[in-house]
Amino acid sequence: MKQIVVISGKGGTGKTVVSGALAALAQDKVMADCDVDAPNLHLLIGAEYLEENLFYGGQKAFIDTEVCVKCGKCLEVCRFGSITAEFRVKQQLCESCGYCLMVCPAGAIGMDKNPAGKWFVSKTAYGTLVHARLEPGEDNSGKLVAIVRKAAKEKAEQEGAKYVIIDGPPGTGCPVMAALSGVDTALVVTEPGLSAIHDMKRVLELTDRFKIGAMAVINKYDISADNSSAIRRFCADKGIDIAGEIPFSAEIYGCVMKGRPAVEARDANGVEQMKKIWNNIKKRLQT
């Protein structure tokens, strides 16, 4: 079984649109939405929730005010400003190091499981989808991404699927690293804008570091001819294949607005490019 991750660095370049198109084109696969901060793929391919599971983040400190002797030791050692002058824990700021608990002479501090999100297994018209949702302000998205990927891989094994297609998170941080580690190939979706190009370069530094082969997709390539040529030159220099180039199209935009995968758009050239992208991925994975 092969795992493919779709990433971009910058958000909004069309990562989910491409993932949705791959969901509609690929056979024998399980989809995983690893953008756990702002999951969207379920909107595009429809989802009937079959399983719902609670996700626990790092344990957070809590103070039993009845036992607390207000000595101030916890306040003194906490470096995250998560203990107030009234000896309460601001759980959003707690990093779960346990220092307060270790120094408390009264035994008034404990660590509590912290429900930080949910993850789901859903049925879609295009096969199984594993997705998740992190509560706002929770900082354990890397761990939740790992859970989604593990569940997707297990589902794929059960179903005898050939591929796991992962819609990755934006950025270059911890959740992106969790989405990248151990995949067979990465598809980097960019667009001919300065920000998107800048961010594509940053995310390619990351795939390099993980020694994962990458291919690029230029989305809305016709918005700027100059920038698109710059991307092609950059990719040629780096030895990165361009899997396809999708035009800017009101048809594709309209299709996504209606919550339908972009391959259903009445844009023959755009749809042709999406098919080409999937064929190039398959070819890459055979060698």
Partner: peptide, 25 residues
Amino acid sequence: PGTSCAMINTINGVDLCVLVTEPTP
């Protein structure tokens, strides 16, 4: 972007948040 810990740290203490969106699902 998003509603991560980094975003919460950013908006901590501001007077107003302007939320930019687009008219899609």
